Computed example of a mutant assay.
Amino acid sequence: MRRSCHRRPRPRVRFARVAGITAVLAGTWTLSACVGTAPSEVDPVASSAVAAGVVPGSPTAAVTPAPEPPAAMAVGDGAGAVAAADHLFALWTHARTTGSVAALTGTYADTCGICRDVTDRVVELAAIGVTEADGDLDLLDPTPTEIVPGSWFAVTGVLVEGPARLVDAEGVTTGTVDSGRYGVLMTLTWYEGVWRVESLDLEPPTP
């Protein structure tokens, strides 16, 4: 169902497109930058595996619950936007370490290319029995900006990715993932009590 910002005209949000970065997450993986200017249809499922909830080859997915949304996400303000950004990255870590992307469904719009890339990559690896171990994502110094009162927000900060290992279904390490540090520009909408990520740009932070 198409969602609007409380039936208001779509705000003209214009952020400069930043250069895409290449992050080594389970091999060479280009995370393309994306910028959204208005809410769009939610990507209902990234693949048929998402609909099942657990991707074949990911034995830990059935026993590892997804992180619960923090209490701050119940409010459509700047603190809620930061909490929603943190929660997305927590769900990314959960997906990458369990092979299940079910908890990501509906958390982002189809305008968020990086979000789709993460989901697709998890599904591809889980299909061959590969997940990640460790590799936590931490959002440092998050700063919210209210673009349209009560409905559109931006969050900036620095995303720190810890080193991780690629493991097969037997728990054997098959590769490693380098750590990384990226500047973040995320836009989010708040509608009918639900947060959704509309766009996410990542770039190497300025020294």
Rank of each mutant, 00 (worst) to 15 (best):
G76E: 01
D110I: 01
H6I: 12
V197K: 03
P39M: 05
V130M: 07
G78P: 04
R10K: 03
A90H: 09
T189M: 15
V35W: 06
P144A: 10
G27I: 04
L159V: 08
T119W: 11
F15C: 12
V18T: 12
V45N: 06
G53M: 12
W195C: 09
P69W: 08
D77C: 11
V82A: 04
D77E: 00
A81Q: 08
A23M: 13
D120P: 02
T156R: 10
S100A: 10
G20R: 04
T111A: 12
S58C: 11
A102N: 10
V177Y: 02
E170S: 14
T173H: 10
R8D: 15
P207M: 14
D136V: 15
A126F: 10
L104E: 01
T93F: 15
V160G: 02
V63P: 02
T143A: 12
D120N: 07
G36M: 02
E161L: 14
G57I: 06
V194C: 05
S32G: 09
A61C: 10
C5D: 11
S48F: 03
S32E: 14
P56T: 04
V197M: 13
C112F: 03
A19C: 13
G129V: 08
D168T: 04
A46S: 04
R8W: 13
V184N: 04
P204M: 11
H6T: 06
E41K: 01
H94I: 00
D120E: 09
D77G: 14
T60G: 00
H6F: 13
E41M: 14
R96T: 05
R17K: 10
T60Y: 12
D120R: 12
A46T: 11
G193E: 01
C5K: 10
M1K: 08
L25T: 06
S4P: 11
T97V: 01
T176P: 07
D110V: 11
G193Y: 13
A79H: 08
R3D: 13
T37M: 01
I114D: 04
G150T: 12
T131A: 07
P39I: 07
G150C: 01
V177S: 07
A95L: 08
H87R: 07
T105N: 09
A84D: 04
A26G: 15
P69R: 13
V184K: 05
V75M: 12
A33P: 10
I147A: 07
A103F: 06
V130G: 01
E198T: 05
W190Y: 15
G53T: 05
L188G: 00
S179R: 13
R181E: 10
S48I: 08
L140K: 08
R10C: 07
V184Q: 01
P11Y: 09
G57E: 00
L125T: 03
D134A: 03
Y108K: 05
F89S: 08
R10E: 15
C34P: 03
D201Y: 01
V101Y: 06
T131E: 00
H87V: 01
P163W: 03
T189E: 15
A72S: 08
T22P: 01
D201N: 05
D43L: 15
V50Y: 09
A49T: 01
A103K: 12
D77S: 04
A51Q: 13
A51S: 13
L188S: 13
P39A: 02
A33N: 15
G106C: 04
